Computed example of a mutant assay.
Amino acid sequence: MQRGYVPFSIIASLFTILFLFVVNWLTTPSEIWAIYPALFLLFWPLNALFKFQDGHKWYSLIASILLILVLLTINLIQTPDYLWILYAWLPLLYWPLIMFAGKRAASPNFAVIASIVFVVYYVGLNLYFEPGFPWLIFPAFVILWWPLSVTFAKRPMLFSMFGTLLVAIFFWNVNTLTTPDVIWAVYPIFAVLWWPLSIYFFVYKRTA
């Protein structure tokens, strides 16, 4: 069954891709829309091939590159004047990076270094494309949870405290940058303060 499934997925995908391009050519030859579903259809034989060969690491790399090519194609065809692909390609490469790193990806040093690279890259994009607004705080807020969780995963109290601090800093900055006349950040900050309080009273205080 495994030997027959891989060639079947390849032939079926190629047949479907050919059908889509024929329909594209017959209906709207001026707009090449068939390339988008065609690129995504390639994931089927790739998944089948690497699944049976236990090549999850290489599948993650090839799949990430294929996704980047899909987004790059869409970018160059639809909005060639603005290269938004620069915002998307690095997060997609983190998937194969973690797969190839293996157990090292769970180490605090790896998480910190990878997060620093991520944040520094988006700082550069922010300064180059849109220096008027520091939107980098949004992807930085998301990626910083990685080293935070890896470092303090076995220390729930410290994790809750540093997590609360990160959330408070994030919402306060968003409040200050977007609507400084309305102080709304106190509401999510107040809500997240219950996190370390609950850890203290229902975990540490109970066992004390």
Score class of each variant (00 low, 15 high):
39 L>F: 09
30 S>E: 15
140 A>L: 05
113 I>Y: 04
131 P>L: 14
20 L>N: 07
19 F>Y: 11
140 A>D: 12
103 K>H: 07
132 G>T: 09
91 P>I: 02
103 K>W: 01
31 E>D: 10
123 V>I: 13
34 A>D: 05
127 L>W: 14
126 N>C: 13
56 H>D: 15
33 W>D: 07
113 I>T: 08
53 Q>W: 07
129 F>L: 15
57 K>A: 13
147 P>A: 05
68 I>F: 11
124 G>A: 08
44 W>Y: 10
80 P>Y: 02
69 L>K: 05
49 L>T: 11
20 L>P: 02
38 A>M: 00
114 A>G: 10
70 V>A: 13
22 V>Q: 14
101 A>P: 03
117 V>W: 03
148 L>W: 00
36 Y>H: 08
57 K>T: 11
39 L>R: 00
142 V>G: 09
151 T>I: 02
71 L>Y: 08
82 Y>L: 10
144 L>E: 06
125 L>D: 12
68 I>E: 12
55 G>C: 04
73 T>D: 09
109 N>P: 00
75 N>G: 12
97 L>R: 01
40 F>M: 11
147 P>I: 06
122 Y>S: 04
46 L>M: 15
113 I>E: 06
52 F>Q: 12
117 V>L: 15
33 W>Y: 03
66 L>A: 12
118 F>C: 04
134 P>G: 12
128 Y>H: 13
36 Y>N: 08
94 Y>D: 02
85 I>Y: 06
34 A>W: 03
123 V>T: 10
40 F>I: 13
42 L>P: 02
98 I>E: 08
125 L>R: 04
24 N>M: 03
50 F>N: 07
73 T>A: 06
117 V>Y: 07
81 D>R: 04
61 L>H: 04
130 E>P: 05
106 A>E: 12
25 W>S: 15
139 P>D: 12
22 V>W: 14
46 L>C: 10
69 L>I: 15
59 Y>H: 11
143 I>E: 02
23 V>W: 10
54 D>I: 06
133 F>G: 13
88 A>M: 09
145 W>V: 01
43 F>Q: 07
41 L>V: 08
83 L>W: 11
76 L>R: 12
98 I>S: 05
26 L>P: 02
152 F>A: 03
120 V>K: 01
83 L>Y: 11
18 L>W: 14
148 L>D: 00
